[in-house]
Design a protein around this nucleic acid. Sequence first.
DNA 1: TCCATAGTTCGTAAAATACGAACTATGGAA
DNA 2: TTCCATAGTTCGTATTTTACGAACTATGGA
Lengths: 127, 127
Amino acid sequence: MKPLIHPDIDNITVEGILHALSDPVRVAIYADMAGAGCAQTCSTFLQVVDRSIPKSTLSQHFRTLREAGLIRSERQGVEMLNTTRCGEIEQRFPGLLPAIMSAHRVQLMQKARMARRKPAGSRTSTG
Amino acid sequence: MKPLIHPDIDNITVEGILHALSDPVRVAIYADMAGAGCAQTCSTFLQVVDRSIPKSTLSQHFRTLREAGLIRSERQGVEMLNTTRCGEIEQRFPGLLPAIMSAHRVQLMQKARMARRKPAGSRTSTG
DNA sequence: TCCATAGTTCGTAAAATACGAACTATGGAA
DNA sequence: TTCCATAGTTCGTATTTTACGAACTATGGA
């Protein structure tokens, strides 16, 4: 098993962060993790991401988050404990993650409103 | 020629914005455009992005920015005038774009510092 | 030693991206 | 009107990235 890669704080890039968080599954994972306040295992997120996502795919998503510098993963017995690196990133890119998380919440709330308005799976046609 | 697609403000997603700005060429274009204060043509950015980038590729980048809702493009005679939609987006996702642009500037400044420190094209080895 | 659990890696099919060639739309000159 | 130049788009294809099942690795416990 190859050792996990955690980039040094100075090698974390804005593009890497944005790319990592531009995927709905990953941003959901990250948001949940940021809100959790304590380290969480990978499998925890099988519940967060309600679709039954293959664990190989989930593993890749964690790798992407890790190599973008967003999270730190440490083996703890048979499982893997993940924590966000938001403190470090806040130092390097002040306000970036809070703004993304805030925007993410705005979007979640809007989605919830839309779902309440039109129950079945219909979408607005946007030319 | 198909009509240009500009998503309605309510259909602009955080993921779409992050994806669009997760490319170094696109974020450079967007940053320049946001700083310009007036509409700019596509070809303007051939200078901003110093690499000689093919115009088909540049066109695709503009399309990505446009369809993510970040910019608005209007034909003006023989050329295309582009403006950011930062006002609208600020309403929907307050603070998101300023934070990304700020982080981008931090990164540019760090790169400039590094380049001054080590003139030739050498990079830090980050395992 | 054997098994279960948690996650990684590999192989391959599907999707996204880059870029040259060909095309479209507009404006100006002959 | 016809022809040409400019600015940008679209198409075709090679390359890169991503998704996911199958096989593998690492740890803990019976």
